[in-house]
Amino acid sequence: MAAALRSSPLAHALATLHPEWIEVAGMPLASKLRDDRPDRSAKLGICDLSALPRIGLKGPGAADWLSARGVPVPDQPNTWSALEGGGAVARLARTEFLVEDGFSGKAVARLAPDLKPGSPGVYPVPRQDCALALTGELVNELLVQTCNVDFTAQTRDARVVTLTLMVGVSVTVLQQRLAGTDCWRLWCDGTSGPYLWETLTGIAAELGGGAVGFASAFPDAQLQNLQ
């Protein structure tokens, strides 16, 4: 995989877990870890999805810019709407958006070339996130040990986006069904990624979970669509 152009903020941390890599949008994605156990994802799995394609934009014209390109824009701050192929358009506070493709989405590839400085009121936000998925029955236990927001009060259908602090790091959190797996999604600045990863996987390990590969967390995902 040395030829891959991009690398995840967690590349180094994952490398110590002896992963099998696949490449997604030019970035290696850990599909299996040497110690992956089938029950771990069901209990509490933490999976690196930094490789998923995404773009960000903000500004007073951002919503219109997305609408004009056929993207379903969530009309309320801090909500998200679904994209074809498992992706999401998250409205971050009022006028900022994060668009991320799911495993088989093509929206980002379509939008990215258009997103250049110059459109009035539309400001590109470079996204270099550490993007995670948390799976399993004990996710809430991990969340209550790391974040002072009551996530049990949120239903998946309400499509809430939460911008908050988790162990001191600014994060974006939402609940999603991705490739047939219910999960919590979490994004933070890539430079905080290794710390957040180390902290979350450490706590998860105490709870009987831990880092998992993509194939373990999302067994139903069509891997070939990714490449």
Binding site: P77, N78, T162, L163, T164
Partner: peptide, 17 residues
């Protein structure tokens, strides 16, 4: 811990501010 209501993000503990 004190709760403060952000006009955009709603009620949050003051440590988020």
């Amino acid at each position: 811990m004190k709760i403060l209501t952000c006009p955009v993000n709603g009620p949050r503990p003051v440590s988020e501010f």
